[in-house]
């Protein structure tokens, strides 16, 4: 996405906000987002603290931490899954982004890789789970191929476990997402900086250690946080891959829609949802703060 600010300033020059008839023009937008975004958010937050008949309670939150609850292990799995795939995906994706950025700016290679990554990062969902089942399941082509070569890959059950197969599938959309998010930052590096380093006697190592590294670092960390929330909130791929259990939080929330509702636990799903919002909001807040710092150096 080409977010390039070309003009700014007219916005500020008009000064502050004056309430007037002009406000009527934004009523549809605010009404719509209130009904379909703000109210749902409030429903989740409030619902987490009331019981089935609307009385305030802390039971929903307590139920999450209970010894019979599977929420805490699921939260732990979700966090580990998201951290591992975010960091690994960010490192690999950043190297890929750098490699792509050295290609011709209008070349076919860059367009091809960017489009492919866009698809895998944002529109995969169920199809990605299918792709991995077609490749790595017991009948999958890679399993069959490896077996023919005499390499035993075991029972293929690893594909359906959250810390093995699911992690691999998540990497499959995290690396592309990193490319999409990080490419603008890498492209913001000016060749003059490298030339200046070389003129002053710096080596490639000095350049990365002292110039490009520190400039890219806030963008890199920011992108990693974005990858974290992406993995943390993903539902479709996991739902399509794992049908027997609910090892991660989104699947557990999904489970509250289909399973029998236990009396007194009607709003436990909302409590889980709120826990997710808290984690994501915290990370996004950190991201916004870093993004502000990053944009000091890079014209995007």
């Amino acid at each position: 996405m080409a977010d390039r600010p070309v003009l700014t300033g007219t916005r500020r020059a008009l000064g502050g906000f004056r309430p007037s008839g002009a406000l009527a023009g934004v009523v549809p937008f605010f009404a719509y987002t209130t009904v379909f975004l703000l109210i749902p958010t409030i429903v989740v937050v409030v619902g987490a603290f009331v019981d089935g008949s609307g009385r305030p309670t802390l039971d929903n939150i307590a139920a999450l931490g209970g010894s019979t609850s599977s929420f805490l292990p699921a939260l732990q799995h979700s966090l580990v899954l998201s951290v591992v795939t975010a960091v690994t995906g960010a490192v690999i994706g950043a190297v890929l982004a750098y490699a792509v950025s050295t290609a011709r700016p209008d070349g076919m290679l860059k367009r091809f890789v960017t489009a492919l990554c866009g698809v895998l990062a944002q529109f995969g969902g169920v199809a990605l789970a299918f792709a991995f089942m077609a490749t790595f399941s017991l009948q999958g082509f890679l399993t069959v191929w490896l077996t023919n070569l005499g390499i035993d890959t075991g029972s293929s059950l690893w594909l359906y476990q959250w810390d093995k197969g699911l992690m691999l599938v998540y990497l499959y959309f995290q690396i592309p997402l990193m490319l999409i998010v990080f490419l603008p930052a890498v492209e913001g590096i000016k060749p003059q900086w490298r030339e200046a380093t070389e003129t002053l006697g710096g080596t490639t190592w000095t350049y990365w250690r002292r110039v490009a590294g520190p400039i890219l670092m806030p963008s890199f960390i920011g992108a990693t946080l974005l990858l974290f929330t992406n993995a943390f909130s993903a539902y479709a791929t996991a739902a399509a891959l794992i049908s027997q259990a609910s090892p991660i939080v989104p699947l557990q929330i999904g489970g509250t829609f289909t399973s029998e509702v236990i009396l007194g636990q009607e709003n436990v799903g909302k409590a889980m949802a709120m826990a997710m919002v808290v984690v994501v909001a915290l990370v996004m807040w950190l991201y916004a703060w870093l993004d502000k710092r990053a944009s000091r150096w890079l014209v995007r």
Partner: peptide, 15 residues
């Protein structure tokens, strides 16, 4: 971006 789709579903149920 801060409200995952799965959370939005929970909140959208009454809507």
């Amino acid at each position: 971006l801060t409200v995952p789709a799965i959370v939005l579903v929970v909140g959208l149920t009454p809507i």
